[in-house]
Structures are given as C-alpha cells and as structure tokens.
Design a protein around this nucleic acid. Structure first.
Lengths: 114, 114
DNA sequence: GCGATAATCAACCCATCGGTTTATCAACCC
DNA sequence: GGGTTGATAAACCGATGGGTTGATTATCGC
C-alpha cells in the first residue's frame, strides 16, 4: 500500500473487521480484548488490525496497568470525509456548468465562448 | 479484499492514482487515454485501476466509437462519506455523555445511576 | 515468587494488488 | 483491405494483506 496518509486511512477503512472496531470505539474507549470479543479471530489478528488503525492515526493507545485502552481519533476521519465531500462538490459543480451550457445552446447561442 | 460494497469503495479510494482519476472525473467525463495521460504508467495499468473503480461502482463507462468515456458515480461516495459521518457523530455524542458524566461527578453526586 | 491474564512479536501461508510484457479485439481513416 | 489508435485480456512477478501458530513480555492477584 501507499504510505501517504489518506491512502492509509482509506485502506484501514476498507476492512469490515476494522470498521466494526471503529464503530465500537465511537461508543467510547475500550481495551483490546473487549474489541476482539465479537470476532471469531485470534487476539493476534485483532492486534494487527489495531496496528493498522494506529498507523492510519485512527486510534491512539494508552497504557493502564496490563491493559492498553484504545481511543478513536477523529482527525483522519475528517480528512477522509473532507476529500470525498470536496470531490463530490466538484462533480455537482461540473453538472451545474453542464446544465448552464445546455441552456445556452438551447437559447441558440451555440456553445459558449464569451 | 472483502467483497462487501463499502469495503470495495474504501479499497478503491486507498490508492493515489485512483483518487487522482476520480478527481479528474469530478471535472467531467473523460476517455481512458486522457485519464492515463498524467501518469507514468502503461495504459493497461490504468485500465486495471478503472476496473477497480467500476467494480466499486464509482465510475460507469459508455461506448462511443472506439472510445470508452468514463463518468463519476457519486452514490458510493455518499455511502462512504455517510458511514464516516455517522460514526464521527456517534463519537461526538459519546464525548458529550462523558462531559455530562464529569459534570455530575463534580456536582458531588458520584457516578450517576439515577 | 507463581500462575493467570493482556497484549505483542516473529515466522509462516496463501490470496490479492499494482505493475509489467505480450497478444488480441474493435473502430477509425485512407 | 491495411495501418493506426483506443482499450482490454492473459500470464507473470514482487510486494503486501489478513490470518494462523508458537513464543515472549508485562502486569495483576495471591
């Protein structure tokens, strides 16, 4: 995978187990074993998923005795969502321009270059 | 990769080349060669990227003579962005509940169970 | 100190990814 | 028809991804 930040975030989101972990963390911090409980998967696998999420900046981990509580970090989510929204908006705009273009043509002025 | 829709969308977004292609398509439809022009990459590689985007539902392709014009499809972007926003909102809510909890404790009522 | 629990590290397996090269198909132009 | 251009298909390659087993570290409770 590519090592730029946005790519890491999207790649981290591209796995249902990791999305479920994030969904759980959105309800509040939790230690690793609790995060892994719903899944039919070894603790090591969960640990790997958490490392992916951590490298993407989506979770941060504390240390509290023998537990390593995980917290959701929203900043990368914002950047991801921001990228999507930005380009969706650009698409809407280009649709708008196309509409105007059609209107201009229908008004008999041909394709615009004013 | 997992074959559920959201995973395909996020996986498709997890590559800078594909994001650049989508960014270009947000400005309006384009044939394959034009999409590939900015990249130091064979046409076959671009074709593969487009297939990934198509399987994710992010682009649709027409046929117009020897060209295959590609269009951006926003519906999957909406679903992706929707997933993110939904869980970001859940996180804000849980922060809000935590704040209220703290207020309760500071008011000397201990941790709430009323 | 000792056993149990939380979590990670390391090595390995197999499938998929991103890219290439080579070959093929389809449509245009003369 | 024949050559050129647009686009894809197929086979291959090195790297990475998601999962496992086995061993290791650290902390708790007694």
């Amino acid at each position: 995978m590519d090592d730029d930040g946005l790519s890491r975030v999207f790649a981290a989101l591209a796995d249902p187990t990791r999305r479920a972990i994030l969904a759980r963390l959105a309800e509040g911090p939790a230690p690793v074993t609790e995060l892994g409980r719903p899944f039919d998967m070894t603790a090591q696998a969960i640990s790997k998923h958490l490392k992916v999420l951590e490298r993407a900046g989506l979770v941060s981990r504390g240390r509290q005795g023998q537990w390593r509580p995980c917290r959701l970090e929203v900043a990368p989510l914002d950047r991801a969502s921001g990228w999507i929204e930005h380009h969706r908006a650009a698409w809407e705009d280009s649709l708008g321009r196309l509409e105007q273009e059609i209107v201009r043509i229908q008004e008999g002025r041909g394709h615009a270059h004013d």
